[in-house]
Design a protein around this nucleic acid. Sequence first.
DNA 1: GTGAAAGCGCTAACAC
DNA 2: GTGTTAGCGCTTTCAC
Lengths: 380, 380
Amino acid sequence: MPATIRDVARASGVHISTVSRTFSAPHLVNSETRLRVLACAENLGYRPNRAARALITGRTHNIGLIVADIANPFFPPLIKAAESQARHRDYHIFVADTNEDPAAEEDLVHALAKQVDGILLCSPRMSNSLIEQLSREVPLVVINRQVTGLPAVVMDVGQGARLAVEHLTGLGHRELALLGGPRGSWTSREIRRAATAAARSADAALTVLGPNPPTEGGGTAMAEQVRRAGATAVLAYNDLMAIGLIEGLDTLGIRVPQEVSVVGIDDIALSRLVRPKLTTVATPTAAAGRTAVDMLLQHDSAAAHRNRGGNRTVAADDRRTTAQVMLQTELVIRDSTGPHRPATLGRNGSAATTTTADPGPHSPADPGNTAAVNPEAVAS
Amino acid sequence: MPATIRDVARASGVHISTVSRTFSAPHLVNSETRLRVLACAENLGYRPNRAARALITGRTHNIGLIVADIANPFFPPLIKAAESQARHRDYHIFVADTNEDPAAEEDLVHALAKQVDGILLCSPRMSNSLIEQLSREVPLVVINRQVTGLPAVVMDVGQGARLAVEHLTGLGHRELALLGGPRGSWTSREIRRAATAAARSADAALTVLGPNPPTEGGGTAMAEQVRRAGATAVLAYNDLMAIGLIEGLDTLGIRVPQEVSVVGIDDIALSRLVRPKLTTVATPTAAAGRTAVDMLLQHDSAAAHRNRGGNRTVAADDRRTTAQVMLQTELVIRDSTGPHRPATLGRNGSAATTTTADPGPHSPADPGNTAAVNPEAVAS
DNA sequence: GTGAAAGCGCTAACAC
DNA sequence: GTGTTAGCGCTTTCAC
């Protein structure tokens, strides 16, 4: 039923190779002929079969995008941007979800390898060495992870974490907590590293809690531990966890930001919608998606000369374009962070803070304190 | 570099067709031979090239999923469910984003047609007749739309809208507004139809405002009009618009639910996270994704006998499995709806509400008024 | 500028 | 049970 190149050839009275050229190398065909062929193709509804074409050219014009969890609000903007960029360049995109399972990542790469020109590996949880090995099977661009020798685009979460910690210590907080992300997350390690360093510089204590699932529930579950740790300010692996934590704290009768300040990371759309609006580190996820596609495709131009029976030096050659891009992050201060207020009532291990909205004056024993501010007034 | 069927054949000393059978019809090959072939394949890292296979079998084992906006929180759970279900059945899934553009939908269907076994058309904005026409090119399953003769899975938003209106009128509201969705949306039409009918049954007035973009901004932008319409209760096309509307009303100094009740549709994750928590109609989006994949694949089993040069009755035959599934919805009552409270101060055309939190008495010219309440007290 | 022929990786009759 | 042969729809030498 669907028209083939042969149908068009017959209809326009030329050989199939001329039809082929009309579509893949138009300049090689007489413009009169070309117009005729195009007309026939048009009214037969002919479209080149890309799979068949790929069989011989070695380029599928498809890209794979592997993410940990499509439903995690961090990913959709990235997926959308990648898809959009890909399509502008006439590529289609396979999306696959690993459910945070490292084994699934590997399977997926294998399964997709043959039908794509490359794969975007988003926040992978598997080991660097495995990634490297897989990259010999199919061109890979890694997002949110640095693996030596492979093209990657990462967000500078280290800088973001530093900014966040400085913001917190600047508000007078000295007992910080960090809610770690999932095991195997490069981002989580970077955050931890930078946050630890920044806390030390500011003479603040930082308790690391985790690893945790990168979800709202993961955050909520840690509320009790945050309280036990006596932290007055918390940096979470991502916004979802931060929001979950705020809910958990609320359940414990601990108010944010009056008693505890909370900072998230990512600046997902949700962050402006919850109350208090979340202070967070904005990561350029859409840009990451676009950039990754561009890198893959540039990379891919080289890979196109697939070595039909050739030696394997080609694979090595491809790597020469390898680059690692680091995207800037920035701190967005909203309403979930505020100045440190030492508890004035008892301080018997568990921070004894009243649940009532009572922003009375406190003993400014901590260094770096700023003037007290009515939390209500800040709700912008 | 990647191993081909021929490499495996050579390594295991059999003909390529035996290798082929080992993978596509294992029972047809001697178990000893099979084991040997499998072993060779294994250590050559051979995997059948699905595109090449598709060329001859006519089945790509790929599915297309076309949505209006990946970043709209309504879609990710659906995409995730569809992807998961597809992969369980050994299918990969192309995801494409139309940016709410009907023309893009058509292009995408054409572009994807050849490399998929079928397409899931999600909340399409194009005309029924075009959809029908496209379905002759590639098997289609439509989600959130009913088009005669085509398999579809829809959410029963009509019932949901009715429930929502009944809830609202039950609370004493008599001046309702409906925030319509995007032009071309079947769902929007269904909601409008059901809401109108339900309002009439309850002797309530319903002002329809729209069409609107199905986004937060779309909702925010309508706050002023809602006020002008004098509505005390609003049903929005989706949660995003409902949330946006609440923000917009807040800016106008109108409190939800004290002065205006708002109901959304979809029950996206966000709805429980905003304050006030959103009353909404829960739609089973994940189930819709799964079901649509199942329908497509069942449908596809028939389509597999692609008519190589055959007549076109096959296409007609495929249609016999056509079914339309309607998924139940349910009203989730949270905190954005409350009893009608007649304004007691002036009513000079535009509902005169002060921006300061000053719930003073008003002249009760409007019908159906109840007592005033301190807005602060309700914010749970 | 166009046609002829070979072949991408694979499956599907059909022999044996 | 396995080998042979013919192609799926297309691109790409190579002649002419």
